[in-house]
Design a protein around this nucleic acid. Sequence first.
RNA 1: GGCGGCAUGGCCAAGUGGUAAGGCAGAGGUCUGCAACACCUUUAUCCCCAGUUCGAAUCUGGGUGCCGCCUCCA
Length: 452
Amino acid sequence: MEHIKIYNTLSKQKEIFSPINENSVSFYLCGVTVYDDCHIGHARAYVSFDVVRRFLEYSNYDVTFVQNFTDVDDKIIKRANELKISSDELTQKYIQHYYRDMDKLGVKRAHKYPRATKYIGEMIKLISTLIQKEIAYELHGDVCFSIDKFPDYGKLSKKVLEDLESGTRVEVDQEKRNPLDFVLWKKAKPEEPSWDSPWGKGRPGWHIECSAMAIKELGPSIDIHAGGIDLIFPHHENEIAQSESCTGKPFSKYWMHNGFVNIKNQKMSKSLGNFITLQEILTQYPGEVLRFYLIKSHYRSMLNFSPDGIDESKQALQRLHQTLKTVTNLDIPKDKVEEFARLETRFIEAMKDDFNTPEAIGVLFDLNKLINSSKAGVGLLRKLGGILGLFYDDVIDDDIEMTEELQLLLEKRNKAKQEKDFKTSDEVRDFLLTEYQLKIEDTREGVRLRRA
RNA sequence: GGCGGCAUGGCCAAGUGGUAAGGCAGAGGUCUGCAACACCUUUAUCCCCAGUUCGAAUCUGGGUGCCGCCUCCA
């Protein structure tokens, strides 16, 4: 396979990836609304597309990666009011938390993190254009997008308008021209952050920000636009409608969407309240273990979260690390060049096929076996792991604080072992296990403590 | 009600027309005072029924079960 294939939500099939301009790739990823901590679902999205980005970069594309922060929104206003702080204070805090969590997961920083509130001017321009073109209309200080003016409406989500209209869950505002028309600009209510506009004080609707930021930072037509599967409708559908109506150009060539993280067979989401924050999980597991767990299944499939799964991942990842630690020869032995090359090809082919990380990880374990049996060639493992964003930490064991007491116990056991007083040495081991929940392992590199 | 996705060994998970990758757990072995770790070896015919085909987990039709979207959501 020569080309990278990407599953495009727009066509519902895998397509050969061919960016608009030769070697450069413009990549826009929908970021978080910063009113709360990120959970495992967010991690999946950002890790998934981090892998996509890394592989494109590995394939010599010059990637410009932009990811927004939504820092104006109903939930932000509500939360800020509850906490009696400003929206700005609230969003600053969670933006920092975002960086903190993603750094631990080894997610590369975007080239730019535009924030919605810094692009109000751009949004007003877009909305004005839409009004001029009579695609948008004012309604009591709000501005709505008239979906009937965009014939392609529904092309991303494959929705049929009539079906949507009959849906019982769509709240019908009688005055809208079409019940499905969405708000571009919201009239200000008292006590809310607001900006001046040709239509009076107000704030932007949700969808317009991404159009404004993507167009401003990456141009009217971008290569890849990505986000969670839940954003397909209405968010991305609306982005397409407003952007393409405005510029007259295709908004994004490829649309990529990651599947959900479920927990107990139910979508993990803030509204359902069944989420586990990254902060929580990252106190129990190293970031790399969670990363490994997430990319162990394909980014488009559903992932049913379970702690057992993470334990399993930890165990598996540890084997790779062990090889990295014990095999020191980076070079591939001369008589096994072909065998190594075959594995490398398999890995790259898997990645080229819509970023098949589970398959690629499978190859990593075959490679692991080959390296161990030939006691050499560990450089390739490090390289391929790097494409997946693994091995950024050399140690994945939890840090165990070496207290004086622990130190004494270990010395006592060592001494007993040397004197072949195994009764005492076993007592120390049992003691550590029951009192500290720590396991002792005698490795070639010496004694190691692990959490039981 | 409309639209879409999924169903592979005890668990997780690739494969999507040519006779089932990989991981975890389990078993056997090497190592070890014993363990653990690590390493080596080993373990399935793919939800059900009918059909297409020389050949299907992979295609078609019909079931059953689970999930998601249609409202803010990665």
